[in-house]
């Protein structure tokens, strides 16, 4: 890789590679899509800041050439709030994961949605705590095996995208690491929308999640996403028509795009 090729490669800190992600991890896909979207916005490393909490997803800013804050567990959004309110001219993007965002950072998450502060949050939802070796998270599906749910998860999971809609975010969508083009477009839409944007990217974690849940191969997990993701339009039609929603299926697409009053938008 050499510099100035255009696209995401210009944004990578090459002296930090290779990265720490496991073979088959989906996070790299999401980072790629995010950098592609940021680049297409015409933003530069000088006016863009990446901020993250703790976990696999949160290592991403360390591989990007911009100013970046790798903060404490769950707190990326309030750090980002301070940066954005002090310098509204900077573009602030948060990388987070399901544990970071929905468990320890849950309160910060819903309040940032309520404030509708002008941040774009990209959440890599791998259903698991990857960095610590595969413990259950607030997004672990019912019945799934993790090191802390050895008999199957018996807690219902959070629906992050719906949570963000209910809490007031201006833009919310969900895609997966299978839907690369759609994911990139969705992140782009989030970056363009003033106010709070959440893009939930469902990603495979073959090491921490797949191995225990009969999805050992990365390819098998990506195929699982492809086969279980239902386009939002179809999902809503099935709901309206009272058709049974297949077990394990989940909606992907745009959950909301609106223009509620936002905070931290450059005037």
């Amino acid at each position: 890789m050499t510099g100035n090729q255009g696209g995401f490669q210009d944004w990578l800190r090459e002296d930090r590679l290779p990265h720490i992600y496991c073979t088959g991890c989906g996070n790299g896909t999401v980072i790629n899509c995010t950098l592609d979207a940021v680049d297409k916005m015409g933003w530069t490393p000088e006016n863009t800041v990446f901020i993250s909490g703790i976990g696999c997803s949160s290592r991403a800013p360390g591989y990007i050439v911009t100013d970046s804050l790798h903060t404490t567990h769950g707190r990326a959004i309030p750090f980002a709030t301070g940066v954005k309110l002090s310098r509204p001219d900077l573009h602030v993007v948060v990388f987070t994961g399901d544990g970071d965002l929905a468990a320890i950072g849950g309160n910060h998450f819903i309040h940032a949605c309520r404030r509708n502060i002008d941040l774009t949050v990209v959440c890599m939802n791998n259903f698991i705590y990857g960095m610590t070796g595969g413990q259950g998270s607030p997004c672990t599906p019912m019945g799934a095996i993790s090191t802390t749910t050895p008999y199957g998860c018996n807690e219902p999971p959070f629906d992050l995208a719906s949570l963000a809609v209910a809490a007031g975010a201006n833009y919310v969508s969900r895609w997966t690491s299978y839907h690369v083009r759609e994911l990139t477009k969705a992140i782009r839409a989030g970056l363009e929308t003033p106010g709070f944007s959440l893009i939930e990217a469902v990603v495979q974690c073959p090491t921490g999640y797949g191995r225990k849940n009969r999805l050992r191969e990365a390819g098998a997990m990506v195929a699982w996403m492809r086969d279980n993701a239902v386009l939002m339009q179809k999902w809503r039609r099935m709901q309206e028509e009272g058709l049974p929603l297949p077990s394990g299926a989940f909606p992907v697409g745009e959950f909301v795009r609106r223009n509620l009053p936002a905070m931290g938008v450059l005037e």
């Binding site: 901020i51 100013d67 804050l69 903060t71 404490t72 707190r75 959004i77 309030p78 750090f79 980002a80 709030t81 301070g82 940066v83 954005k84 309110l85 002090s86 310098r87 900077l90 309160n107 910060h108 309040h111």
Partner: peptide, 21 residues
């Protein structure tokens, strides 16, 4: 800028973020 955050965890986090600007 004055911002009332959701708790003190967030207050000090916002202060540190602001300081980095």
């Amino acid at each position: 800028t004055f911002v009332q955050m959701e708790d003190e965890l967030a207050s000090i986090a916002s202060v540190i973020g602001a300081s980095w600007t």
